[in-house]
Design a protein around this nucleic acid. Structure first.
Length: 600
RNA sequence: GUCCCCGUAGCUCAGUGGACAGAGCAGUGGCCUCCUAAGCCGCGCGUCGCAGGUUCGACUCCUGCCGGGGACGCCA
């Protein structure tokens, strides 16, 4: 409808003299229902250029539009306030819209705005140095939902995970595992293992093997990996030579864990990446050096103090940036540039990077380097999200990966899932009436975790209130949406039992109640809501929208019955309920990645 | 010091330059012989951090300041 009215406005405006070139009419859904179903500010914006008062321009435009517009779609065109033009939908438009929703089914909400275009969404991208934490969770869920949104606007989407298994971090991890392994081997031989003390969590001291790196990873998982190696190989692994076998085993174990965690974090197999891109390949095939040469040829690179620098002062930064250290080893920025160049070479029309706020200072370098290399940085969107604070009992939980004071995503899913299903945390015993499986805990936990990550704007610091998340009550906002879906499922089951059936030709004109009309209008906004969320890369807009849908539905539910009503009315209302279910399901499952249960 | 994000109801947060600023929770008052009350209907709740500016119109854009968080490395 928005598109239709925008087209009619453009047509009417083309008859007028003095309209600025490239003028695009704007249409919005007014906050107050008495201002109609859609409104435009066109007259206000054109009053100046046309040299007339806004009211007069509005009256003129409204007059022309009334003659132009299809009366089966638009019931009224009125001028109001300082010069707004308010449109009211015709009943026939609502009926047809409802039919379209039901006909489209799981395809409703999708548009072909970007049909034929490809997009790459890069997210998670955590190096395998430990389990995924709550912080990674926001990245993973946000990236996944953004990828879903882009797919809904027609993009052919590739989901990619970028990692580096050859850098300093991984070497330190390998050393950490090796130290634990050697201590384990010594202990088994009954030899004393020398130890030393490091700073651990919250100012406490931690005793570690003497060979443990000062910057080593203190998490228990490191010892688990060492133990696994010891169980496999005994103390046969060379203790004097390199860390390769330890690093390799750690990577293998941790990557398997990461994939498993991602697999839990969503409906239908969870988050599944299409591709894992190893930074190391950029070294192996020399691409890193090709990029450096190209930047040098373009005149943006110089050598000083044994290091190689990029003149980022020429691209708007305070300082120049080191690309290659005096050790001959590139900083991470150079492979980042090469990686993005590779994305361009693969021919994507649109590239989205989902990064935490700590990357905010680095990506401008990558974008300006790309521009220097002749790529269009406008094709890259960097979606920055702010950090997550986990709040338990009103107090923030402090986290550090290295010192092992993190909360893993797995633990978060488990803790929340167990709590809402009332499985006793300590014993794992069900304290509810029914047997509860691990799958159910995962689903319940993941639904809530995903929703909490997706209900806020990415630019907003996210306060994850564990106590609220663990409440299986109306306080927990995700249930409001799921409950509306469940309720519809329940009604449709019941209606079937008493013999109210869907019809090929329902009389939808019977849906005249205020609550019915409001609900239909809400449902018809879905494609536009998806489009706006996709364009902004902001999934929380879908969550906000779905809340409005659920609310419109429960109001309809409170006022309008199905069972017990006259047959034709009952049938028409069933169709409306079904259409609502379609929207809730498509939004929850296909975009937010949250389950839409049949029963609760 | 420079840069980025945030500052909206008691709390957590929505709010595409528009018409009297919204939701949930918390508070409070009603509503289950009726398709799940995980619900519905009321009530109260605001110097939209402060001060300027742009605009017919600013919570929204610009500048400055104040407060909270983060980034500024030959770490990733």
């Amino acid at each position: 409808m928005k598109d239709y009215l925008a087209a009619r406005l453009r047509a009417v405006l083309s008859d007028l003299k003095g309209v600025p070139d490239g003028f695009e009419p704007e249409l919005e859904t007014p906050a107050a229902p008495e201002h109609g179903d859609l409104a435009t500010n066109t007259a206000l914006r054109l009053a100046g250029p046309l040299g007339d008062s806004p009211r007069a321009v509005a009256e003129d435009l409204a007059e022309r539009l009334r003659a132009d517009v299809d009366p089966e779609r638009v019931a009224s065109v009125e001028v109001a306030g300082p010069g707004f033009i308010n449109f009211r939908f015709a009943e026939m438009h609502l009926q047809r819209g409802l039919e379209e929703i039901l006909a489209a089914g799981s395809g409703y909400g999708r548009t072909d705005d970007h049909a034929g275009e490809t997009a790459l969404v890069e997210y998670v991208s955590a190096n395998p140095t430990g389990p995924l934490t709550v912080g990674h969770g926001r990245n993973a869920v946000l990236g996944d939902a953004i990828a879903n949104l882009l797919a809904h606007t027609g993009y052919d989407v590739t989901r990619e995970y970028y990692f580096n298994d050859a850098g300093r971090q991984m070497r330190v991890l390998g050393q950490s595992v090796k130290a634990r392994y050697e201590a384990l081997a010594a202990e088994t031989r009954g030899e004393p293992a020398p130890t030393k003390t490091l700073d651990g969590a919250e100012g406490e001291s931690v005793e570690v093997p003497a060979s443990f790196p000062d910057e080593g990873y203190q998490g228990a998982y490191v010892t688990d990996i060492a133990r696994a190696l010891f169980d496999e190989h005994g103390d046969a692994l060379p203790s004097e030579e390199g860390v390769e076998p330890f690093q390799k085993k750690a990577e293998e174990v941790l990557f398997a864990e990461i994939e498993q965690t991602l697999g839990r974090l969503g409906v239908d197999g969870g988050i599944r990446m299409d591709s894992f891109f190893n930074e190391q390949t950029l070294y192996d095939d020399g691409r890193v050096w090709e990029v450096l040469d190209a930047l040098r040829e373009a005149g943006y690179v110089y050598d000083e103090e044994g290091a190689t620098w990029m003149e980022t002062t020429r691209t708007g930064k305070e300082k120049d940036t080191v690309l290659v250290k005096s050790s001959g080893e590139p900083t991470y920025r150079l492979p980042d540039i090469a990686y993005h160049a590779d994305k361009f070479e693969r021919g994507f029309d649109r590239m989205v990077d989902v990064f935490g706020a700590d990357h905010i200072a680095t990506y401008p370098d990558v974008l300006s380097a790309l521009e220097i290399l002749g790529y269009d940085p406008g094709k890259v969107d960097v979606s920055i999200y702010q950090f997550v604070t986990l709040v338990r009992g009103g107090e923030p939980v402090k986290m550090s990966t290295r010192r092992a004071t993190y909360v893993t995503l797995d633990d978060l899913i488990d803790e929340v899932g167990r709590a809402v299903l009332r499985v006793d945390d300590a014993s794992g015993e069900d304290v509810s009436d029914e047997e509860i499986s691990d799958e159910e805990i995962t689903r319940a936990g993941a639904d809530i975790v995903r929703f909490f990550f997706l209900m806020r704007s990415p630019s907003s610091h996210l306060e994850f209130d564990l106590d609220l998340a663990k409440e299986a009550s109306d306080k927990n906002p995700v249930y409001y949406l799921q409950y509306a879906h469940t309720r519809i499922a329940s009604i449709l089951r019941k209606a079937d039992e008493v013999g109210v059936a869907f019809s090929d030709a329902p009389d939808l004109s019977l849906l005249t109640h205020e609550a019915e009309q409001a609900l239909i209008k809400e449902l018809l906004r879905f494609p536009d809501a998806v489009r706006q969320a996709a364009d902004a890369r902001e999934p929380h807009r879908v969550a906000t929208y779905l809340r409005d849908v659920a609310q419109a539905f429960t109001q309809f539910y409170a006022h309008c019955h199905i069972i017990g009503e006259e047959r034709d009315l009952a049938t028409a209302r069933m169709h409306l309920a079904k259409a609502t279910q379609v929207v809730l399901r498509n939004g929850l499952v296909d975009i937010l990645g949250i389950s839409a249960p049949e029963r609760m």
